[in-house]
Design a protein around this nucleic acid. Structure first.
Lengths: 361, 361
DNA sequence: CTGTTAGCGCATTCAG
DNA sequence: CTGAATGCGCTAACAG
């Protein structure tokens, strides 16, 4: 009951001094190493409790190889990565691993290379392995076991979890075609991203298969502002589209906003379909029809794989998750004709609630 | 171009060796200290680029006081803390701080004391300050600047961001009373939590003010499973309530599920109102009427305060955010009578979309 | 201008 | 069974 350390937290030295033993002994007790007398053990543990001591992750990880912490590296915490984080957290719940999520591009506006930098800053010491969300560059896989989710450069890395973007793009376009649309525009994502290119390719293939020529493509860049301008151009054009397939939900919602501002009704005057199924999609007005990526499940799959790689030295795999059309209120036949019961056979429907699962975790 | 370090990432020593200078020089260059020849600087930077070196957060933080990283400590990543994280990330975007979110109760099923343990593990070295989400214990405030969000023990700590739980509980109950309900049950949260007690107190006060006696209270513990049982008991009772005020959205959704399973229609046979307004609330069927806590804004307010405490040595404050009734489809007059236009004057309505904001960030 | 020295808090040999 | 010494990667004095 003397001084509980001069500043801030108690260190192992404080515990040792307080307990009247050496730091080495305290370390052994903490880590359950044997070779310490029963009485000493109990005494040390009591002091640990009194001082509220917990070993510093920092110091520990510098001396040790394993920290039992798994890192999730994201550019920033936006809806997409947050959903993945849910899955990661669920999968690790009750396991021996803690989760540390790091947003590496929040400061330093230079978004470039945040993946490698974050990895180098945390890897090797702080974390036993990492899940990297949507990396745009090839990652050094020698730092620490690694799983990439939805990498923008295609399945280059050894371990990857992604969805079938080509098929999803096709699915979205088929849905619109099935409703009777022929003037279908595509608001594409950043051209340098593999996922965006595949979604666009799916769009083109679907049009071609349906014998529709003259697609309309504008660059949305996965960004609200850029998309707003692009949607404006689409709606101003003489051949105004009756439907828009946006490369992700964020830009789809932006498209709805712009259209509504111009007095167009969604879906009567303009159908909009997105991609991802983030939580905001179902909460929008009208609720957004979209191609669902099973984000929570993807997060779970990624850590499952990662933990196997760490614990059992398992081989890296490439996991591809299926997409699914989620039909809501933002799409309808052109001209606002009656919905007409069900969707044509080209499009499938999954009625399940998108954000429903995981609540019980 | 010799060996880029034997294992994993390159260290400052590797860079020094490769560049033919001392580690101290490299350190100076990295940190922009002056006192290094222009030529040497450029040479070192080139080697840094070649080796893909980035300083280890761990080692740096052990020697330095500031890391420019802000920690967000949560028990686990569930919808509530994830929304807060959105606000934190938005507020810090473009600032000089990065965000590190740590889930401290994921492993070690012992949820007890995760706050202090996480703080001790990260604090003092790894992070410059921390936002602790929903702590159940009093925190040591001498480790690092600290802001608590929605602490369960009341505003004990020096810096706190929370909402007016008493008023919110009253608001929820008033809404049901205004609709004409008199047999109103409350599914309360964990009794040891201040927020839960305040919501219950608001419920009781509202009933008393309306001259309604004989409240029905069951323990839901903020937990789905426990709540399901409690709701079952309520619905089995001879004096079956016509409305339920659940202490949070998770348990409110559970209440709807249980009621539906028993063949009751919501809201015709049973009205349900929740608390929080998590994303799943608006996506539910029927969409959940609830008391909104402005989670994203709370996260933002918390870091704003924290950064001022770190940078400007500002005094800790207690920030209380307002709650707001969000009327959706899960409440109606008893017996399923027509909705009747608007809500009676006791209840107010905020039509804004709950998950809409922040999308542009 | 640059290199050397001394720790930060901890876990790990290796001697007592 | 316990304690003193060593070093993880890095930065901050201080020497050269």
């Amino acid at each position: 009951m003397t001084l509980p350390a001069r500043t801030g937290r108690a260190t192992i030295t404080d515990v040792a001094r307080e307990a009247g033993v050496s730091v080495a002994t305290v370390s052994k007790v903490i880590n359950g190493r044997d070779g310490v007398a029963q009485a000493t053990q109990e005494h040390v543990m009591r002091v640990v409790g009194e001082l509220g001591y917990a070993s510093s992750l920092v110091a520990t990880s510098m001396r040790r190889s394993r920290t039992h912490v798994i890192g999730v590296l994201v550019a920033e915490f936006e809806p997409f990565s947050l959903e993945l984080l849910r899955g990661v957290s669920e999968a690790l719940s009750g396991s021996e691993y803690d989760v540390l999520a790091y947003a590496g591009a929040v400061s330093s506006g230079s978004h470039h290379g945040w993946e490698a930098r974050s990895l180098s800053r945390l890897g090797g010491t702080l974390i036993d392995g990492a899940v990297v969300v949507t990396p745009t560059v090839t990652l050094p896989d020698n730092v620490v076991p690694l799983v990439a989710i939805d990498p923008h450069t295609g399945p280059t890395g050894p371990a990857v979890v992604d969805t079938d973007n080509l098929r999803g793009g096709k699915e979205a376009t088929d849905h619109l075609i099935g409703l009777g649309h022929t003037r279908i525009a595509h608001l594409r994502g950043r051209g340098d991203l593999q996922s965006a290119r595949l979604r666009e390719q799916g769009y083109r293939e679907a049009l071609a298969d349906a014998g529709i020529t003259g697609g309309i493509v504008e660059e949305g860049g996965y960004e609200p502002d850029e998309s707003a301008a692009a949607v404006g151009r689409m709606l101003d054009s003489p051949e105004r589209p009756t439907a828009i397939f946006a490369a992700n939900d964020i830009t789809a919602l932006e498209a709805i906003r712009v259209a509504t501002e111009r007095g167009l009704r969604v879906p009567e005057d303009l159908s909009v379909i997105g991609f991802d199924d983030i939580p905001a999609a179902s909460a929008a007005a009208p609720p957004l029809t979209t191609i669902r990526q099973p984000l929570v499940e993807m997060g779970r799959a990624a850590v499952d794989l990662l933990v196997r790689m760490i614990d059992e030295n398992a081989d890296p795999e490439h996991v591809r998750m299926p997409t699914a059309l989620v039909e809501r209120g933002s799409t309808a036949p052109p001209g606002g004709r009656a919905r007409g019961g069900r969707t044509p056979p080209t499009a499938r429907e999954r009625p399940e609630a998108p954000t429903g699962r995981g609540l019980r975790a």
